Simulated assay, not measured.
Amino acid sequence: MAERPTTSWREGIAREAEQLAAGTLDPGCACMADLYPDELLTATDTALDSFDAEVAELDSAKDVQIFAVVERVVVALNAVDDVHCGYETDEREALCAYIDEALTEYGVDVAALTARHGLGRYELTDKWRDW
């Protein structure tokens, strides 16, 4: 199963907290908790929960249905980013990769889907993405 970006972000926060507690990390170098506040993580997971539920129901869906699911998650993530300003380049790439991997796991040939619409594989979210 595709790993959500929020999982690795939470793991990074936990590792950093352990290093701080052990005294192996200078507090001035700690940044994970500031980069990924709980509100950002929770809101991102809420958007991805809805996406995952919709993707699981796509069985033999038409392109328009698949694009609609992608649009909804991207718009939801736009709203999260509007409030929390939390998605920089690495986060954007991780979110896009998650969307691609989740669709692929449920049988969507993302490369073929995007090619049928004159897009490159990695342009799947571009039409709606503000982050």
Rank of each mutant, 00 (worst) to 15 (best):
C85N: 11
T89H: 07
D49K: 03
A53Y: 00
S60P: 00
H117R: 12
V80T: 13
L41R: 01
H84C: 12
A68M: 11
I66V: 15
L119P: 02
R129T: 05
E71W: 01
L35N: 12
D49S: 06
E39H: 05
D26T: 09
D52P: 10
R129S: 08
G28R: 11
E93Y: 15
L103S: 03
W128I: 08
D26I: 03
T7C: 01
H117V: 04
V64M: 08
L40A: 13
D63T: 14
S50Q: 09
E88R: 10
E16R: 08
V83K: 08
A112I: 14
L40T: 09
R72I: 00
D81N: 15
A21D: 14
A94D: 06
L25G: 04
V83Y: 00
D59K: 12
T24V: 12
E39C: 06
A79E: 14
L35K: 13
Y122P: 01
C31K: 15
D63Y: 14
T6Q: 07
R72C: 00
A102R: 14
D130I: 13
V75D: 11
D26Q: 07
L119K: 11
L119A: 07
T42I: 15
L25I: 11
Y36D: 04
V69W: 01
A97R: 12
Y106D: 10
W131P: 02
A56H: 11
A94I: 00
C96S: 11
D49Y: 07
V73I: 06
E57S: 12
V108D: 03
G86M: 07
E123C: 06
L103H: 03
V108F: 06
D100E: 14
D100C: 07
D26R: 04
L20V: 03
L35A: 09
A47M: 01
C96N: 15
P37W: 04
E91A: 12
D52W: 08
E57A: 15
L119H: 04
T104A: 13
E93V: 15
L41W: 01
G12W: 01
R116F: 07
D81P: 01
A56Y: 05
L35Q: 13
E71C: 08
A94G: 03
C29A: 12
A97W: 10
E39K: 06
C29I: 07
